[in-house]
Nucleic acid binder design. Structure first.
Lengths: 184, 184
DNA sequence: TAGCCTAGAGAACGCTCGTTCTCTCGGGCA
DNA sequence: TGCCCGAGAGAACGAGCGTTCTCTAGGCTA
């Protein structure tokens, strides 16, 4: 495995689990087995590493969602079933992008930008599902689904015991929104 | 004004605007005009100050929401109209609680706890509105409204240009959820 | 075999910041 | 008037951490 890849795997685990600021470059070095010197050759600063981490997470998170949803007949419902499974994972700690935004958004334009891009990609994907479901206004339904996904994730993070409840409530709200969107 | 109150006013502004970690105790001292020694007499640690900030913010935020909603006839809709106005304020920077959770949740139990309490208070209030609206299952509708409020806030934070769109989309999703909840 | 280049380990540096300490000054009381 | 107490200003301290530097060892080439 490439050095950069090893670093990204280790950093992805650490940053998501413990938060970006709580993880030092030396922790990344120890977990990846890549020396500091080489680490800084691959990523010239911690900010660059964080941006790369978020981009990798975007790709993997979206792929997991999409591959899970695309094999189901009722795709909008499948989104929230996937969410519920995600919320139930042991290391679930909320949305890595929202957390990173809260930690670094005030100090790093680059982080802001990559988070925005991720949410836009998710919005675009949901817009496809909305159109497929027959919404009269797919942009509106996509925005509603995005709000429900992000809201359920925040609620699940703050209150892990109610995570499944939040996912199911969001799923039912999504169904109601789809119904309303198709009736227009 | 009491020293503690002066500190809380200054800290509230700074912590919300720039994030908790980006604001040092010396910034709070400078903004409040209260000496460091007295500051530490009022709040024995930065964590204690952060908790007090969040508790004060909870009280004021909920009061603002409630007083605005209670004078309207259709209260659920009023929640999202209030959100849209909030999102449009100059210094809007997302949900102070979610941001604090992202910044400090991994290191401070106390912060986690106060954020959880705030969301529970909001859920309780929304449950009252859900029951009043005639929902067959007010807990479910309350959870859905909570998810919509938090989701719209996150979306508005990440993409300020689309903040009003997010608030209105959430409001329409809420209306659909109310309709569905009353039809059961 | 001798010299050079690279890479890794980890020490070092500089900065930020939470927290505490010290020094000085002013005001109230005997 | 002289003393004591408290309060404020700000220096100081120590820890954490991003980033860079140094030293050493090992392998490759002539």
């Amino acid at each position: 495995m490439e050095h950069a890849e090893r670093v990204l795997v280790a950093a992805g685990e650490l940053f998501y689990r413990r938060g970006v600021r709580a993880v030092g470059m030396d922790d990344v070095r120890a977990a990846s087995g890549v020396s500091l010197k080489r680490l800084y050759q691959c990523f010239p600063s911690k900010e660059a590493l964080v941006v790369a981490y978020l981009e990798r997470r975007d790709e993997r998170w979206m792929s997991s969602l999409i591959s899970s949803v695309e094999e189901r007949p009722v795709k909008v419902a499948a989104v929230f079933e996937w969410l519920e499974r995600w919320f139930g994972e042991d290391d679930f700690r909320g949305c890595g992008f929202v957390n990173a935004y809260g930690e670094l958004g005030s100090t790093s334009e680059a982080v802001q930008e990559v988070v925005r891009r991720h949410k836009q990609r998710l919005r675009d994907y949901l817009r496809g599902l909305a159109a497929e479901a027959g919404a009269a206004d797919p942009d509106l339904l996509a925005e509603q689904l995005l709000v429900l996904v992000d809201g359920a994730t925040v609620t699940a993070m703050v209150n892990p015991l109610g995570a499944a409840t939040a996912a199911r409530a969001a799923g039912r709200a999504a169904a109601a929104a789809v119904t309303a969107a198709c009736r227009e």
